[in-house]
Write a protein that binds this DNA or RNA. Structure first.
Lengths: 224, 224
DNA sequence: ACCTGAACACCGTTCAAGT
DNA sequence: ACCTGAACACCGTTCAAGT
């Protein structure tokens, strides 16, 4: 991509992310990233210990895109909703790379920051340490899943290719037996690409938050 | 593993799954699976079109482990809970391979069967086609995430290795600054490995179902 | 300190050939 | 029909060397 005087760690991560967005995570390769910087593959080893190091840096980059809202005095669940929305907003543009966030939640600085805030808010909601720890890994995992399976064309790739993928997926679903899969066939359109992606993510976050409120409520109810 | 007279597609998938469980998905390789059957790598191409075909078959195997409960006359949300519980039960033993389920939901027969039943139950709950389609990909994705991030040693690998991983993870979390990450440090133990894995999955399913009930409720409320 | 070049052990996969 | 063997283009990575 951009040939420059000095190889730079951040720039390498940037092109790695670009490759992932455009061609999928399996296309990001030491040799490929090196080539895009007109450099020998071995040059990358000055900046990352190994390929796993590159991928970890990619996870870090991904999660550092989340700008966490400052704590305020609204109810804990409203603050949690905003936190989760910020988190998912960072992953949303990069569905191909989002899988990396599974590892990154506890191994990168921005991942830990999100986890910390989520734990604090659930504690404010009256959840026990054990329950909120469980719930944290659950909800953050769910949000990553939300970004991965988001129906519709991935925002990173070129729109032409994306539309082709959507068309193909819809066609596959419509080709199914309506006797065996009546509901799937009827829902082929929204399953292939949801009408409003923003709404998709908002609803996902809402569902998670209301699930947590119920869980926190029952815990408080049974504990006294 | 087992050397036999004739190469068998199902047996190949079985050893592929075993490799994934023991050493991770990146260890399952055409050459590796072939070697375990004392056969040339090329022999696998009689049974799968390419490596992707192997992985797809692996996804199919994974999802076919779910024994779907028969429809009955209980409320839709109780049936949905049982459906999701059956689904997650199939993924639970194979956290390393569970990522494949993301693709398999709409590309394998057992994946479509689960999606079909989920859509039917949400329709019974009064959800629109669009909303239930969105929600289906959300909740099934969440369950896959649940299996992937389940804290604690993976059930597939040998226990010694698993305990080492848990110990290492706990140590990493405990080494963090308690000033910056007070809640994470305090929750290091349950984050590294939850006390009761069964409870972890039950709560995950419950949270999802209660989230859906809320979503279905507000939709019905606003639509009239 | 930062980058190169050759080399090694691994991949997936094609093609022609064996039985 | 099913499997083999050699070959090719790709990986990640080590090691010794250049500036």
């Amino acid at each position: 991509m951009a040939a420059q005087k000095r190889l730079n760690r951040e720039d390498l991560v940037t092109t790695a992310l670009a490759v992932a967005d455009a061609e999928g995570l399996e296309a990001v390769t030491i040799r490929r990233v090196a080539q895009q910087h007109d450099v020998t593959p071995m040059a990358l080893y000055r900046h990352f210990p190994d390929k796993d190091g590159l991928l970890l840096a990619l996870a870090d980059r991904l999660l550092s895109g989340a700008v966490l809202p400052e704590p305020d005095d609204r109810p804990w669940y409203d603050q949690l909703r905003d936190l989760l929305a910020a988190f998912v907003e960072a992953l949303r543009p990069h569905p191909n790379a989002a899988v990396l966030a599974f590892r990154g939640m506890v191994t990168t600085e921005p991942g830990l920051a999100v986890t910390e805030r989520a734990l604090a808010l659930m504690a404010a909601g009256g959840m026990s340490v054990e329950h909120s720890a469980e719930t944290a890994s659950h909800i953050l995992g769910s949000l990553v899943a939300l970004a991965i399976v988001a129906p519709g064309p991935p925002p990173g790739a070129d729109p032409e290719e994306g539309d082709d993928a959507v068309r193909a997926k819809r066609a596959t679903l419509l080709a199914l037996s309506p006797r065996r899969y009546p509901y799937v066939v009827a829902a082929a359109e929204p399953l292939a690409a949801c009408a409003d992606t923003g709404l998709y993510f908002d609803r996902g976050v809402d569902m998670i938050v209301s699930g947590i409120r119920d869980a926190a409520g029952t815990e408080t109810a049974t504990s006294r």
